[in-house]
Nucleic acid binder design. Structure first.
Lengths: 231, 231
DNA sequence: TGCAAAAGTTGAGAAAACGCAAACTTGGTT
DNA sequence: AACCAAGTTTGCGTTTTCTCAACTTTTGCA
C-alpha cells in the first residue's frame, strides 16, 4: 500500500500536538478503509479489535433493542475519533457504525491504544474530551426524552444535525447526508408519521425545506424556539 | 484530624491492587466528609475541585432542565467513585449529588487525579470501568425512554434499585433508602400519579409492597416480565 | 423507459399518559 | 395529643402520540 501522506493528519484534534515525524509514525501504523455509503464500519457486539478516526464522510451510530427496534445514538462528523470502546475498557462495540455517505476511515489495532495514550501528547486528552462530550450529549438526550414532547425533540435533533453536519447554501443550511422521516423518528423516539406531520407543517411555515431525503433548515431561529416548551 | 485507618480501603475496587503502605498514603491525602441525609455532596455547575469515593450510604445524582423539572440520572451504591468529572476532562460537575441516607465520603483534590492515575496500579482502570458502566447504563436508559412505555420503564427502574441497593429480608428485597412516587417518576420520565397507579396495581398483585417511602420487591421474576413489552 | 421499492403524506380512530382535583394516610414535631 | 407537611390514592376529562390504512411521490435500476 502506498505510504500515507502525513498532511492527512493536519488539523485533526487528536494529533494536533504532534510534529511531522510523529504524524508519519502514526500513519505508518494505520490502515485506511474506504466504506461505501450504507455499509457498516463495525457492528454491535463485535470484538473491538480496532479504533477509528473518521477522515471523511459521515457515520451513524445505532443500536437495536431486544424487540428489534432501532435507536440512533449519534452521528459522527469528519475528523472525530469513534469506535473507541477501548477508552472505557470495553472490548466489544456497544453499537453499530454505519457509513451514511462514502467514508474514509483510519483504523489502528486496539493494542496500540495504550501506546498512543502514553507516547503522543494530547491524544489521551482529546480522546477523553470526545468521550466527555458524548456523555454530556447523552445526558441531554435523556433529559429531553424524559421531559419534552416529540415536537421539541425533533426540532432539537434537526438543529443538532444542522450544527454538526450542515452545509450552508444560499437558502439556508442543508444537512450533509440523506435523512429520512424514519431516521428522525429513530433519533427522537417517535414514529415516522408524527415526524412527517411535523415536517409538513414546518415546511408550510418556511422553517425547513425538504425534497427526497435532503433536509434544509431555512429558519434556525424559529426552529430553536420550537425546542422550548410553550408553557 | 485523627489518622484514618488503612483498612477503610479494603475491598474497594479502585485501590484493590495497592499494598498497605500505599493505602495509608492515599488515605493521608484524603479528607472524610459526613453528609447528613438530604444534603448535597456537590451541586450542578460547581467547579469540580474534588473527586469522591462513597464509603457508606447512598447518593442520588440529579439534574434540572431549564424549566426546572428534575431528572434523576442514577444512584450510587457504597464503594464507588463518583463526581469524577475530571476523568473526562470536565472542570465542572454536570449534576447534583444528594445524600439520600447519611453518607461517609472520601474526597481528594482534583489536582491529585493525574497522580493517582499514574502512581496507583488499577486506579485508572477501575475509574474508566466505572465510567464505562455508567455510559452503558445511559445508553440503556436512552433506549428505554425511546422505545418503551412508562410501565416497563418503572418496572426496570425498581429492579435496578433492587439490584444495586437492595437489602434482602424474609419477604423479599427492600430498597435501602426511602423512595417516593415522585422520585420514581423523576427516574423514568413520568408523573407521580402514573407511578402511583402502577404501584397500587402491583401491590394488589403482590409483586411489590410499599409502606411510607420504603419499597420492597416481593416477586422479582414477575417484575422482570413487566419490563418486556407485551407484543 | 418503465416498474418496483423506498419514502412521504394524510385521515381517522385508539391508546397511553398526563393534568387537575379532591380526599385520604402517615409520621414527625411542637 | 394534635396538627401539619409530605406523601399517596383515585376519578375524570384532555392531550399527545401512536397505529392502522390508504394513497401519492420519488428514485434507482433492470
Amino acid at each position: 500500500m502506498a505510504k500515507l501522506d502525513a498532511s492527512l493528519l493536519n488539523n485533526l484534534a487528536p494529533f494536533d500536538q504532534l510534529d511531522a515525524r510523529q504524524r508519519q509514525e502514526v500513519l505508518d501504523l494505520a490502515r485506511v478503509r474506504r466504506i461505501p455509503a450504507g455499509k457498516s464500519v463495525f457492528e454491535e457486539g463485535m470484538e473491538a479489535t480496532h479504533f477509528n478516526l473518521l477522515l471523511d464522510g459521515h457515520v451513524r451510530v445505532e443500536r437495536l433493542n431486544p424487540e428489534g427496534e432501532k435507536v440512533i445514538s449519534l452521528h459522527i462528523p469528519p475528523g472525530q475519533l469513534f469506535g473507541i470502546a477501548r477508552a472505557l475498557g470495553r472490548d466489544h462495540f456497544p453499537a453499530t457504525a454505519l457509513a451514511v455517505t462514502e467514508c474514509l476511515v483510519l483504523v489502528w489495532p486496539t493494542a496500540l491504544w495504550d501506546t498512543f495514550v502514553e507516547r503522543y501528547d494530547g491524544f489521551a486528552a482529546e480522546a477523553y474530551k470526545v468521550v466527555g462530550n458524548r456523555v454530556s450529549e447523552m445526558n441531554n438526550r435523556i433529559m429531553e426524552l424524559a421531559t419534552q414532547h416529540v415536537e421539541q425533540r425533533v426540532a432539537r435533533a434537526i438543529l443538532r444535525l444542522m450544527q454538526e453536519h450542515g452545509l450552508a447554501n444560499d437558502a439556508g443550511t442543508q444537512i450533509a447526508f440523506p435523512v429520512t422521516r424514519k431516521v428522525i423518528s429513530e433519533m427522537t423516539g417517535s414514529t415516522l408519521h408524527t415526524v412527517s406531520r411535523l415536517l409538513s407543517r414546518w415546511e408550510r411555515q418556511k422553517i425547513v425545506q425538504s425534497q427526497h431525503r435532503r433536509i434544509c433548515v431555512l429558519d434556525a431561529v424559529r426552529l430553536e424556539q420550537l425546542t422550548h416548551s410553550v408553557h
